[in-house]
Amino acid sequence: MKTSDFYYDLPQELIAQTPLDKRDTSRLMTLDRVTGAVEHHHFYELPDFLNPGDCLILNNSRVLPARLLGQRLPGGGACEILLLIDRGDKVWECLVRPGKKLRPGARVSFGNGELTAEIVGEVEGGNRLVRFDYEGIFLEVLERLGKMPLPPYIKEELQDQERYQTVYSKVLGSAAAPTAGLHFTPELLEKIASKGIGIGYVTLHVGLGTFRPVKEEEITDHEMHSEFCTIPQETADLINRTKAGGGRCICVGTTSCRTLESWAAEDGHMEAKAGWTNIYIYPGYHFKVMDGLVTNFHLPESTLIMLVSAFAGREHVLAAYAEAVKERYRFFSFGDAMFLR
């Protein structure tokens, strides 16, 4: 299949720049993956589409305030460093700007010297290895000095950093939010649980590879990025109980889907697991465990729209996206949601 097979035309004004005042008032399109039938609802109606005995699997990764704005030393020229992967011993793999000025040996200061850094290496692809120097606990320093690493298509400044976190975020480590979960409120989760639907959590730390465009003409030539994920024992047990009882396993977000599908046995049986995954899901993939997917509207020609197309059929998905454009849905991270069932 060609990358261009997953293109659709999106007016720029439909890219949501800010979150809605209330998380669960976003719109919810339901898509029947067998018939292609589409219905229009609101996210707070999601419990109406879930049955007692189903389970909902959410990604509880928390976004690092990983965007650091500083000055080069000496001289004071502005620069930006974006944390990607903790390599240990105070060294992180990072994206840097301006790249030409931040070669190995360059030094940087943040927050009037509260945090300093030195570029100590360069890796394949151009990312830098950066060693940080600070007093105290690094994550606390980041909370004070760092900003949320919003996707490049969001131009507005985020007023409340918590709005780029899910209400159930717990484990720090993502470079971007698992955005399908942004629609949930504590009250909505309580309503779902009270209906007899199991709620389980996995952790997948979202990398910026999520936003990396597919540049190859053939989708099979694209190399998928790796991300670290964890399935706890209680979540594996919940999924196995759900399946044994005839319930559906519904993933919230492509990250939850990729986590489960990475480690599920061919018959759908789950075991506790932790490790790196670079699973790449596109049409033709056989889903082993996922029966339903709550997700946002994704970028044209992205690996995410390919995953959704693998689950619900490319023609159905592109027709649903065309309907969403026509009905003026809000797209991408702060946008509206879909439930594929």
Rank of each mutant, 00 (worst) to 15 (best):
F110L: 07
V120F: 04
E217H: 11
G113P: 08
G126F: 10
D133R: 15
K215V: 15
K170W: 12
G200K: 01
G146P: 02
H205L: 05
T166Y: 01
D160M: 08
M148H: 03
F138T: 09
E114Y: 15
V206T: 05
L95I: 07
G207Q: 06
G209N: 03
R103N: 12
I137S: 11
E157A: 14
C229Y: 10
G209L: 04
G196A: 09
Q159C: 08
P186E: 08
Q165C: 10
P98A: 09
A180W: 00
G111R: 06
E227M: 01
H225W: 03
R97L: 12
E162G: 07
A117L: 06
G198K: 00
S169E: 06
G126R: 09
S194F: 06
E157L: 13
G181T: 00
L142E: 05
T116N: 09
R144V: 11
L95D: 05
G173I: 05
P152E: 10
P104H: 12
K170G: 12
F138R: 06
A177V: 12
S169F: 04
M148V: 10
A180E: 00
R131A: 15
H225T: 00
E190Q: 14
I192R: 00
V141P: 06
V96D: 01
V171R: 15
F228T: 02
I197S: 02
L145M: 08
L95Q: 07
G173T: 05
F228G: 03
E227D: 04
F110G: 01
G136M: 07
G181Q: 00
L172N: 14
E118Y: 06
I137L: 12
K147A: 14
Q161T: 04
S194E: 15
L208I: 05
E140G: 10
T179H: 04
V120T: 15
R128Y: 11
D221W: 09
T166M: 00
T179A: 08
R97P: 11
K215A: 14
G207A: 08
Y201E: 11
R212Q: 15
A106W: 05
E223W: 08
G198F: 04
F138P: 05
V141F: 13
L150C: 06
G200F: 02
Q161A: 14
N127I: 10
E162T: 14
A180H: 01
Q161I: 08
R128L: 10
T166R: 00
T210A: 02
S174K: 02
T116E: 13
V206F: 03
K100C: 09
G207T: 03
L204N: 06
E122I: 14
D221Y: 11
K170Y: 13
N127M: 13
E118L: 09
A176F: 04
Y134P: 03
E162L: 13
L129E: 14
G196F: 12
R97E: 13
A175L: 07
A177E: 01
S174H: 04
G200H: 02
L115T: 03
P186G: 06
E190H: 08
L139H: 15
P152F: 11
S169I: 02
G105A: 10
G181E: 01
Q159N: 14
E216A: 14
K170N: 14
G196L: 09
V120G: 05
L102N: 02
L150N: 04
G198D: 04
G196E: 09
A177D: 03
H225R: 02
P149F: 09
K195D: 08
E122W: 05
A193R: 13
P151T: 03
L188M: 03
T179L: 06
F228D: 02
